[in-house]
C-alpha cells in the first residue's frame, strides 16, 4: 500500500506493507536514523516522534496510521547547524552519557514545553512527563535540569 507523510516539512509518498511500523519507515526507508529503537516493546520512549505536534512512540504505531499526517523527528529540530535551545541545553548540562535515549528525551521535552505553554514548567511536571522515556546512564537529574533550562531558553 502507498502512504503519504510530511516528515520534517518534506512530503513523501512511500510504498509499505500494512504491518510496517512508523519507526521502520523513518529509519529504513527515509534513513532518518536519529529516531532510535531501544526496547521495541513500547516502553523506553527512545523512538518518540511528534505526530501533529503530539509525542508518540513510533514503534507502537503502524506507518499506515500516520498516513496523511505531519511527522517531526529529531532531525527536524535544529536549524541547519544551529542547535535548538533544548538541544543546546542538553549539551550544556551534560544531560547525556551514551546518548542513545537523547533523541526521544528531546522530542518528549519539546512536547511537554508545548503542552504546558503559559504556565511555568516545574521539576515535578518534568519528572511526571518523562515517565515514558528511559535513561540507563544519567539517573535523570541532568536531564531534568536541561529540560528546565531549555524551556526557559525557549520562552
Amino acid at each position: 500500500m502507498k502512504i503519504s507523510l510530511i516528515v520534517n516539512g518534506t512530503a513523501h509518498t512511500i510504498e509499505i506493507e500494512p504491518r510496517t511500523l512508523l519507526v521502520d519507515v523513518l529509519r529504513e526507508q527515509l534513513r532518518l536514523t536519529g529516531t532510535h529503537v531501544g526496547c521495541d516493546t513500547s516502553q523506553c520512549g527512545t523512538c518518540t516522534v511528534h505526530i501533529a505536534g503530539k509525542p508518540v512512540k513510533a514503534c507502537a504505531m503502524l506507518a499506515a496510521q500516520a498516513d496523511g499526517q505531519a511527522v517531526t523527528t529529531i532531525e527536524g529540530v535544529a536549524k541547519g547547524d544551529v542547535l535548538h535551545p533544548m538541544q543546546a541545553a542538553f549539551r550544556e548540562h551534560h544531560a547525556l552519557q551514551c546518548g542513545f535515549c537523547t533523541p526521544g528525551m528531546i522530542m518528549t521535552a519539546l512536547a511537554m514545553v508545548e503542552s504546558h505553554k503559559g504556565e511555568p514548567l516545574t521539576e515535578g511536571v518534568v519528572r511526571k512527563e518523562l515517565e515514558g522515556n528511559f535513561c540507563r546512564c544519567t539517573g535523570y537529574q541532568p536531564i531534568v535540569t536541561a529540560i528546565l533550562a531549555g524551556a526557559k531558553a525557549m520562552a
Binding site: V56, K57, G132
Partner: peptide, 9 residues
C-alpha cells in the same frame, strides 16, 4: 494512564 506518549494515542 501510561505515559504521555501512550496518552497521545
Amino acid at each position: 494512564v501510561g505515559d504521555p506518549q501512550v496518552r497521545s494515542l
